[in-house]
């Protein structure tokens, strides 16, 4: 038995003629916090639903702890916590009724005290009905319900979409609390890149259903770099720059983003064309935007990180 909690093998999903996912190969090792990044409609939610067996693939397969996703045994499901955006819970129930309902499914794992502590922390009374709660409060209840069941694998699909910064922070705290325990794995997708940077060990970037990067967060941060060049004349041979994925030119100035190009090669290229060069710092957001950037960039370079 290998050390992977989640694996997908050429996972493909077509909706009519449109590929939502195209031969996706993912491996999530045990104990990893794995961030799924991608623009809206890139296929992250589809991937997660396929992994959990909530959708059937068009081709390929997915496995959770060695079990095929389309037939996950119920006992395995009790070890998986699943939170999705929207946090849709039964609206007629009170928080306490929800707790009793949930507890019945996890008789050995349920952490009553932790649930009570979380409700306290969120300042939510157990007597409140779900329909009286705001979106953020419902998300908090959902988080408490999921974490109190002590899951070994936590899967979250953009849980903080549309929620305020305080609730986003609480979700992060919940994740950090969970990772501290032995042998827990988290797979999550988020559009808040600074949050991903805080907690992810590894990230995967999915773009239009295709995996474009699958590496540690550090590698991603280190390997996408931007430089500002000043050339002696406006005629700039941009295409010869190794590893180019994005560029902006203004007469003699060129701002270029490269991927996986050693620093010496950049300085060498600049020297060859008598250009002055200066590194431009990039935030993870800048890196993500330019990496999943406009079509021209992708035509130039189709890049996959080594695993």
């Amino acid at each position: 038995m290998n050390d992977f909690v989640l694996q997908t093998f050429q996972l493909t999903k077509y909706y009519h003629k449109t590929p939502a996912l195209d031969h996706l190969n993912l491996c999530v090792p045990k104990g990893c916090v794995y961030g799924l990044l991608g623009r809206n409609g890139s296929g992250k939610t589809t991937a997660i639903k396929l992994i959990l067996g909530l959708l059937a693939p068009t081709a390929g397969r997915a496995e959770v702890v060695g079990h095929p996703s389309d037939n996950l045994p119920p006992s395995l499901r009790s070890r998986i916590g699943y939170i999705t955006e929207g946090h849709h819970l039964e609206r007629w129930m009170t928080i306490r009724e929800l707790e009793h309902f949930q507890k019945a499914f996890y008789p050995d794992q349920w952490d009553r005290r932790f649930f009570a502590e979380m409700l306290d922390y969120f300042e939510l009374s157990p007597k409140r009905k779900i329909k009286t709660l705001s979106n953020g409060q419902r998300a908090q209840v959902n988080l408490a319900l999921t974490l109190a069941a002590n899951p070994e694998l936590l899967i979250m699909d953009d849980p903080t979409l549309g929620l305020d910064a305080a609730v986003c922070r609480q979700f992060l705290e919940g994740m950090v609390h969970l990772i501290q325990k032995e042998g827990r794995t988290i797979l999550f997708s988020s559009h808040i890149l600074s949050d991903v940077e805080r907690v992810a060990d590894r990230i995967a970037v999915i773009d239009k259903g295709v995996l474009r990067a699958d590496c540690t967060l550090e590698e991603f941060r280190m390997q996408i770099r931007k430089y500002l060049f000043e050339f002696p004349q406006p005629n700039i041979p941009v295409d010869t720059l190794p590893g180019l994925i994005h560029s902006k030119q203004n007469q003699q100035m060129l701002e270029a983003t490269v991927v996986k190009t050693p620093e010496e090669a950049i300085y060498e290229w600049a020297r060859r064309h008598q250009a002055a060069v200066e590194p431009v710092p990039m935030s993870i957001e800048d890196q993500f935007i330019e990496f999943t950037g406009p079509k021209q960039a992708q035509k130039l370079f189709s890049w996959e990180m080594p695993v």
Binding site: E173, V176, I179, Q180, R198, A200, D201
Partner: peptide, 17 residues
Amino acid sequence: VRKLAEELVINPNTVAR
């Protein structure tokens, strides 16, 4: 490591790193 990770709300591996 754990304490600093909790305080900063980041992955403990980052602190360890």
